[in-house]
Design a protein around this nucleic acid. Structure first.
Length: 462
RNA sequence: GCCCCGAUGGUGUAGUGGCCUAUCAUGCAGCCCUGUCGAGGCUGCGACCCGGGUUCAAAUCCCGGUCGGGGCGCCA
């Protein structure tokens, strides 16, 4: 749609190609480079849809505008009016194939919208590495870099495809409160805050609220929202504020919602590979310049392998890992499992003793050492955990016993347990780390790459 | 919370006690040239995190601080 500042996007002009030649257009964007100091001047103009060269000739527009543009700095924003023309082909080395036809805008009027200060704290097209920290301090400029831009567009697509898939499977989007009165799960540390005169916390998970929604008859719900954890971790895969993709569904067990999850991931990968190849290409172009392997979007086969906790312990042991039944499967253990299962794989049936109080168990389902198993599961990709989920405990007396077993006071959870006193459907769900999924898709080595303004142990700005 | 590592122009780097008036690239400023296109040519600008110590001599070694990175634990 045309706006006050442009009649066409640059992408439209490029897509129009030959048909656009001679057409009068107004475009606006960032000046990626300004070349030529004599009677002519070339500006590579970039907007959110593409880049095109603007050609300015002294005499074809008023002198003042010409000089303003010619003397302006990279990344300044400007607006040009002119006509679309075929671009003269660049010189190519002998024997090289002729370059594809390109188009430019022959400028008849120009306006500088806002000047960029020099020097830029991080170059948008410069051929130098930039440290992650410098990039994050200047994220507003970093995002102008094409591969970074592509990652965030891809992030939006992933959320869109996931959302579309869940809606198709009958889920309704919900929102849970992020300001809560008490620990929703116990376990991790919460950020304390004051809610007027009442002490409160930032929510670590929508878990209990999703369940209350399902108990309330919403049947199938999902939420895409932030979670906050006051853990002092400092790794490539942890942040203190992160967005999770959460679902909860009535009349389901763990296996049912594992199905939802693998179908959703399959659907996201399929859509990305069908529709967003150009974004992956942009990312790969950059990766190549950095000497990194290009990423491939290989649509994972459904169903994903299921490696039960019992089996996982055996794999780790036979791979030489130090582990006993009942121990958590740590990252270095996951490396051993990932040797056999490098892609997505579920690890179902964890020991009940290791799972939160709200996870369901079936009496008589015992592990190799005779201890009670749960209906909790993880989804891993290689060594990294993407999701944890499970069937939930819907029997209120069992729920209260679980709380006691884990040294929590049922009185603190009446807002939750009361929801189970008036008939509760068996239900199950999971929470998926959006950034972790994107790391897999984009080959990013750090979650901070795929989160616009990450919050970690030492970063609260920008 | 534990372990390891690092800090040099705007950005990314070279540098292992004297060869450092500190390298290279990119950037920035100026000039020249040019339908350029990774434009080109010339000239210039710009840095050793902070504080203390060792030494004839410290970007370099030691101590403390600050900031940052990586790994682990825990988790998504």
């Amino acid at each position: 749609m045309p706006t006050t500042y442009r009649s066409h996007t640059i992408g439209q002009i490029i897509a129009g190609g030959e048909d656009m030649v001679g057409e009068e257009v107004t475009i606006a964007g960032f000046a990626e480079s300004v070349r030529g100091r004599g009677g002519i001047c070339f500006v590579t103009l970039r907007d959110g849809t593409g880049k095109i060269q603007a050609f300015l000739k002294r005499g074809s527009l008023d002198d003042e505008s010409f000089e303003t543009v010619q003397n302006s700095s990279r990344e300044s924003t400007m607006m040009f009016r002119g006509s679309v023309a075929r671009k003269r082909p660049p010189k190519t080395p002998e024997g090289a194939p002729p370059p594809p036809k390109e188009y430019e805008v022959t400028v008849s009027a120009a306006e500088l919208l806002a000047t960029a200060q020099t020097p830029l704290p991080v170059g948008v097209v410069d051929d130098v590495n930039v440290g992650l920290d410098t990039r994050l301090d200047n994220r507003h400029l970093d995002v102008r870099r094409s591969h970074v831009n592509a990652m965030f567009i891809l992030r939006s697509k992933v959320l869109q495809y996931g959302r579309e898939h869940l809606i198709e499977e009958g889920f309704n989007e919900m929102n849970s409160p992020k300001i809560i009165a008490s620990a929703s799960e116990g376990g991790t540390n919460l950020f304390p805050m004051m809610y007027f005169d009442t002490p409160a916390f930032l929510s670590q998970s929508p878990q209990l609220y999703k369940q209350l929604a399902v108990l309330g008859g919403l049947e199938r719900v999902f939420e895409i929202g932030p979670a906050f954890r006051a853990e002092k971790h400092d790794t490539y895969r942890h942040l203190n504020e992160f967005v999770s993709f959460d679902i909860e569904a009535a009349w389901c067990d763990d296996e049912d919602v594992m199905g939802v999850l693998e179908r959703m991931i399959h659907s996201i990968w399929k859509s990305v590979s069908e529709k967003d190849g150009h974004l992956i290409e942009t990312i790969n172009h950059y990766r190549t310049t950095q000497g990194l392997e290009p990423v491939k979007v290989e649509i994972p086969e459904v169903p994903f392998p299921r490696i039960s906790y019992d089996e996982a312990i055996d794999i780790v042991k036979s791979g030489g890992g130090q582990i006993e039944w009942g121990d958590d499967i740590e990252s270095h253990h996951c490396d051993l499992i990932a040797e056999k299962y490098p892609g997505f794989h579920f690890i179902p049936r964890w020991p009940m003793s290791m799972k939160p109080f709200y996870i369901h168990h079936k009496e008589g389902e015992l592990g190799t050492t005779g201890q009670q198993l749960s209906r909790g599961f993880d989804l891993n990709y290689g060594r990294d955990e993407m999701t944890s989920g499970g069937q939930r405990e819907h029997r209120v007396e069992v729920l209260e016993q679980n709380l006691l077993n884990m040294d929590l006071d049922p009185k603190d959870f009446t807002f939750y347990t009361d929801g189970f006193r008036y008939g509760a459907p068996p239900h199950a769900g999971w929470g998926l780390g959006v950034a972790r999924l994107l790391m897999v898709l984009t080959g990013a080595g750090n979650v901070r790459e795929v989160v616009l303004f990450p919050r970690d142990r030492s970063r609260v700005t920008p």
